[in-house]
Design a protein around this nucleic acid. Structure first.
Lengths: 221, 221
DNA sequence: AATTTTTTTTAGGTTTGTCTAAATTTTATT
DNA sequence: AATAAAATTTAGACAAACCTAAAAAAAATT
């Protein structure tokens, strides 16, 4: 069984994980900047994580999480994103307010807690920022969700989720003939009001407001 | 504003609070036993809590939380019990499983989190063990709820809540003519099967099983 | 290739919260 | 009231996680 790790250890693991997503390797300075700690402190912790067999690390070299380290990291990411989803969906937090709180909640250790939470939330696949939530085996959807506001022009895409369940929003979406699964392309953006012209699957064009575009998640096809 | 306290400090505060409920005062040894730490460590922390103006403490004397200390303690108790309620009501935990997890969750610091959670849970007044949940001002219902199994003979009492929402339970309660608000007295307990004979408000007598009695909360009148 | 700059590590401290062992104070017993 | 026992505090250490300052290694520049 995987042992428990301290909050500090978990923060290092999680940050290494995120940093190594780009190039596969991380440097002491990068990590120290991400964690807001001095490089000397980072070195200390790297030795400890190596000792605990989570990290490939040799002095003065770049480092990376090994298989076990990545597994642990995915568990933390899972908790973080599930809690974010919970805060937004159930406790009426805004997307922008959840990160800090989730930073604390992600360190709660109960395995049962997180499995029951996942089930209670109905196994969401993406957090409120569109990032994929690893399942209990660490698997997650590869494709990141984008906000419609971030989608470039003329890319085929599909609506994957909406950032709120309010009846007002659902009413509007019904009117515009948009629902989960609707395929669309962004054809134009009007800078005056940031409104967006979409082309739906049936070639119909609709114009949607910035407020609406900013609560629609899509994935590119 | 009240500052934040470390997890260790919070655990001391909470335990002092509970211990001083009986006699109003706590001794170093009592607290050390409750916390599973050595008396010497307790002394260290007592000095710190005194310095932080939470505690009335003089060397070699019994001690107690002052007004501020009690306020802080109630905030922790509030969080603990709200989380317990959440775990049982929303995440299908059994009463017996919640304590440990709540011990961790009670240290999450976000004020907004706990207020939103309270609202999400619909401002429950008692936790799954029948203990009252302080409101955001630290006020709580004085009367503790009891399990019907704990109620002495011939005491007027009123059903306040049921420990589960299962349809099976509700079906049985309907059959027995018992609901929230029903007034009753325990008239006899049969040691063979621990079943209980109740007298309801209309003088009707019913016999209920131990399983049923152990999910009914009552308050004495 | 030599030198400078940057990065990383080492060495030695600090704080928090714990411990053990010894000293002190309080309480209980004779 | 004197002594023994129990409770509490003090003194000195230790681990975790951080720090600063100096040393060492690696990378960049001349």
């Amino acid at each position: 069984m995987i042992p428990n790790f301290s909050q500090a250890e978990e923060n290092y693991i999680k940050n290494i994980y995120h940093l190594q997503q780009s190039t596969g390797f991380v440097t002491t300075n990068e990590l120290s900047a991400a964690l807001n700690t001095k490089p000397a402190s980072v070195t200390d912790m790297l030795k400890k994580l190596k000792l605990k067999k989570l990290l490939n690390y040799e002095p003065y070299k770049e480092f990376q999480l090994n298989a076990l380290g990545k597994k642990v990291a995915l568990g933390i990411v899972r908790k973080h994103r599930l809690w974010e989803y919970f805060l937004v969906e159930k406790l009426q937090f805004g997307w922008d307010e959840v990160h800090e709180v989730a930073e604390e909640l992600e360190h709660i250790s109960s395995k049962k807690l997180i499995e029951q939470l996942d089930s209670f939330l109905n196994y969401p696949r993406f957090d409120p920022h569109g990032d994929p939530i690893p399942d209990s085996n660490g698997k997650m959807s590869v494709q990141q969700q984008l906000l419609l506001t971030e989608l470039p022009l003329n890319r085929f895409s599909e609506v994957t989720s909406v950032g709120s369940q309010s009846t007002e929003l659902l009413e509007l979406l019904k009117h515009k003939n948009i629902s989960i699964g609707t395929r669309l392309e962004v054809k134009r953006k009007f800078s005056f009001d940031q409104s967006t012209e979409l082309e739906l699957e049936n070639k119909v064009r609709v114009n949607i407001s910035e407020q609406l575009a900013s609560v629609l998640f899509v994935k590119e096809l």
